[in-house]
Nucleic acid binder design. Structure first.
Ligand SMILES: Cc1cc2nc3c(=O)[nH]c(=O)nc-3n(C[C@H](O)[C@H](O)[C@H](O)COP(=O)(O)OP(=O)(O)OC[C@H]3O[C@@H](n4cnc5c(N)ncnc54)[C@H](O)[C@@H]3O)c2cc1C
Length: 558
DNA sequence: CAGATGTTGAGGCC
DNA sequence: GGCCTCAACATCTG
């Protein structure tokens, strides 16, 4: 018997690969596609979202509405809280089934639990579908023995074991079940997509990227159309300073909002890979989609993933907040043009290249300022158009050497790193026009320019552009030393799992400290004197250096 | 338990 | 652009 259904959009702002949409159409007399906006939530200021991402969302809703209209339906943008709006709609529209895509973010899980119980009180069936991620991440965790894998290698193996993810769902019928036009609360003027002004933003959006499924598919097709580029993609080799044409796909905001299906992306990549020799995860383009899946999997199954405290995989480090330094970083006035340009791109575009994010994240945390990674994550949360809870937190832990990555002594230089890609500083000149006439020689270090040069460039350091807030050489050394102390003081609590310990307090590392130095000395001597020249040529011996053991660990007292 | 490896370091050298 | 060294962590493998 035909019934009335609600299709509740939250993420998954698309028509393609949308199993919840198919289910909501199934046997439906009237289907009500709903998106709920809580205007007070936004205005209360407790929600960290800037106008660029918010407007991207509004554009995505607008596009969704037109695509629904092409199919004889339309989007109802309801104002209020889900726990008020939905029960009322159940009654008003005589709804028997609520369909939506699963969202595993903590706040979404809590929200959906409340809605589920309200639906059950109203005798409304709830059908949910996993289509934001490639897999059901809970299944991945189960298959991995009940805990998420914490390295990309382990994760890739696990995914291999799982087999290919579900193929994208079929397209919905050309004609969707219509709304009942006399249904209360559905008048177009009451349910249209608001503007950013109506949502209380004062300044207009400045990003170049337009939201919506139409734009997502266009951009996706564009990226995939160059099969050689797709097949040869190697993430670490891409250029963070490219801005005329970004070096990576910029599909992230579309994947974040579900304007583009990750499964469609993945399936199309496999098609290209069938035809061509290709790179492999983690560096390949498919690898990038797996990184997203990785952070969703770990994040969705780790308590307090977005915090240091109470987070079992996170190193407990004695970060120190410093308001002055933090504000300088956030506002792009650290005095390092490479850093400040990236932070400007963040505010203006809401998107930066992955390695640009590395540069500024490293600088804020383990590289120079020693400020808590959570502070940086919150700034990204406000300004990124692709802000994604688990991905953002996971990458911030990575960069701050708090989880996943532990080579904290490898520090990005706020001067040298950018220069490698963009010796002329085009990227800096683009985002920091105050430096546009600074000679190339000084573009990464304007404080070194003689005053005469600064005058000629119409940019006096300390006046038109700030002096550097730290001496990188000094600051990075201090950071490395300090993190070293924190590392030696304890390990994240998950590490206790091996020997059955599960308490939350970090436990000290058991380690004999004596032998480290001896090894170093011996190895140094060996490389200098004893190594035959041809040994150096050993194929693929990139890191084979520390050669045959001339060192005897014998005298190593315990 | 040593040795290789880990998406993406810098700096020197060729 | 590749290779080496700097100093040095965690994890996997045989
Ligand atoms: C400190 C920091 C914070 C970050 N915060 C976010 C965030 O909030 N949201 C976000 O989507 N990405 C985040 N990233 C990851 C990465 O920088 C972006 O996903 C990527 O730059 C987006 O550009 P793209 O779509 O052109 O990437 P491509 O290289 O074209 O990759 C394709 C897709 O793979 C996924 N992907 C790529 N790299 C990563 C990664 N490292 N982790 C997870 N997924 C990845 C994205 O969905 C991306 O769209 C962050 C990185 C860092 C270092």
């Amino acid at each position: 018997m035909a019934t009335n259904t609600i299709l509740w959009f939250r993420k998954g702002l698309r028509i393609h690969d949308n199993p919840a949409l198919l289910d909501a159409c199934n046997n439906a007399r009237h289907m009500y596609p709903v998106f709920i906006i809580d205007p007070h939530f936004l205005k209360s200021g407790s929600y960290r979202v800037g106008v660029n991402r918010y407007n991207f969302l509004l554009e995505s809703l607008q596009d969704l509405d037109s695509r629904l209209r092409e199919r004889g339906s339309r989007l109802l943008v309801m104002r209020g809280k889900p726990e008020d709006v939905l029960p009322k709609a159940f009654k008003d529209w005589d709804v028997k089934r609520l369909c939506y895509e699963v969202d595993t973010e903590p706040y979404a899980m809590a929200r959906d639990e409340v809605v589920k119980s309200l639906a059950s009180e109203a005798c409304v069936d709830v059908n949910t579908f996993i289509s934001h991620t490639l897999y059901d991440t809970a299944e991945l965790v189960k298959k991995n023995g009940g805990r998420p894998p914490l390295t990309m290698q382990a994760f890739t193996k696990l995914v291999d074991k799982m087999g290919d993810p579900p193929y994208p769902a079929t397209d919905p019928p050309a004609k969707l079940p219509p709304l009942s036009e006399d249904a209360p609360g559905t008048r177009p003027e009451d349910t249209c997509v608001p503007t950013w002004q109506e949502m209380g933003f004062k300044a207009p959006p400045s990003t170049l990227f337009k939201g919506g499924e139409t734009e997502a598919l266009k951009r996706f097709q564009m990226s995939m159309s160059d099969a050689s580029w797709v097949a040869a993609f190697e993430k670490p080799m891409t250029d963070p300073s490219a801005f005329e044409k970004p070096a990576t796909t910029v599909l992230s905001p579309y994947l974040k909002f579900g304007c583009l299906s990750a499964r469609l992306f993945h399936a199309e990549l496999l098609k290209v890979y069938k035809q061509k020799k290709h790179t492999e995860p983690p560096v390949s383009l498919r690898g990038q989609v797996l990184w997203r899946e990785f952070f969703y999997t770990v994040g969705g199954h780790t308590p307090n993933f977005h915090k240091m405290e109470g987070n079992p995989i996170c190193r407990q480090i004695d970060w120190q907040d410093n308001e002055e330094h933090f504000n300088a970083w956030r506002e792009g006035r650290t005095g390092f043009p490479w850093i400040d340009a990236i932070m400007t791109q963040l505010r203006e575009w809401g998107w930066m290249h992955h390695l640009a994010r590395h540069s500024v994240a490293c600088f804020l945390t383990r590289g120079d300022l020693y400020i808590p990674w959570e502070k940086g994550m919150q700034v990204f949360e406000e300004y990124l158009i692709d802000q994604d809870h688990f991905v953002n937190a996971g990458n911030w832990m990575w960069l701050s050497a708090s989880a996943f990555f532990s080579q904290y002594f490898r520090v990005y230089s706020p001067v040298a790193f950018g220069k490698k890609y963009d010796p002329e500083g085009k990227y800096i000149r683009k985002f920091l026009p105050v430096l546009k006439d600074m000679p190339t020689k000084y573009i990464y270090e304007p404080w070194l320019a003689p005053l005469e040069v600064q005058r000629k460039a119409k940019c006096i350091v300390g006046q038109d552009y700030p002096r550097p807030i730290v001496d990188h050489a000094v600051a990075s050394k201090a950071c490395i030393a300090r993190i070293g102390v924190a590392y030696r003081a304890g390990r994240p609590s998950y590490a206790g799992a091996d020997d059955g310990e599960t308490e939350t307090a970090s436990k000290p590392v058991k380690r004999k400290s004596g032998n480290v130095k001896e090894k170093k000395a011996a190895a140094g001597a060996a490389t200098a004197e004893d190594e035959p020249a041809e040994a150096k040529k050993a194929k693929g011996a990139k890191r084979q250096k520390k050669i045959t053991e001339t060192l005897k660990p014998s005298s190593d007292s315990s």
